[in-house]
Simulated assay, not measured.
Amino acid sequence: MSRSHRPSLGAVLFFAVAFALGVYFTFAAVQGDFGLFRRVEIAAERDALSRDLARLEGEIAEMENLTRRLSDTYLDLDLLDQQARSILGLLRADEIVIR
């Protein structure tokens, strides 16, 4: 007499729960708040913000340079003339405006 060995209900239940937990944790590791995809998004955002920071630091350095060149201690007459022309619309007497 041969007896067929069916797995017991406890073993089937154990492996079903283990498989479900494995699927859940795998999904969480890939798609979750701290998963691989979120990590890639954060790295891309960090790179974009680093580029923005470098661009803004360059703009700040340029503004500091212009401010220093128009300060009381150091006056760049060419820059002053350029600013007067662009902001106030001033012209010299010997210039002709073409529109």
Rank of each mutant, 00 (worst) to 15 (best):
D52W: 04
D72P: 02
T26E: 08
R51A: 13
A20E: 09
L75Q: 14
R39F: 09
G22T: 01
L49V: 07
S2Q: 11
E59L: 05
L90D: 12
G10L: 14
D76C: 01
F37R: 11
A61F: 05
I42F: 11
V40N: 04
E59K: 03
D33R: 08
G58A: 07
R3V: 14
N65P: 00
A84C: 08
F37P: 03
G58C: 00
V30K: 01
L70G: 00
G58F: 00
F27E: 09
F15H: 05
F37V: 07
A11Y: 15
I60M: 09
E59G: 02
F19V: 10
D33Q: 12
R6P: 01
L77K: 03
D78E: 13
A54D: 10
R68L: 09
S86W: 09
A28G: 02
R69P: 02
R69F: 00
A16S: 13
L21V: 12
A54M: 05
R51H: 15
G89P: 02
L90K: 11
F19C: 15
I87K: 05
H5D: 13
L9R: 14
R39A: 08
R46T: 15
L79I: 14
D33M: 03
G22N: 03
D47V: 04
F37N: 14
R6F: 12
V97D: 10
F37A: 05
V30T: 05
R55H: 12
L88R: 08
G89F: 01
S4E: 14
E64F: 00
G58S: 05
N65E: 14
A20P: 01
R46L: 12
E57A: 03
S50G: 07
P7G: 03
E59N: 08
A28V: 03
R39T: 14
R3Q: 15
R3G: 08
D81C: 06
R92Y: 10
I96E: 13
V30L: 09
D78G: 14
G32C: 03
E62M: 03
A61L: 13
P7K: 08
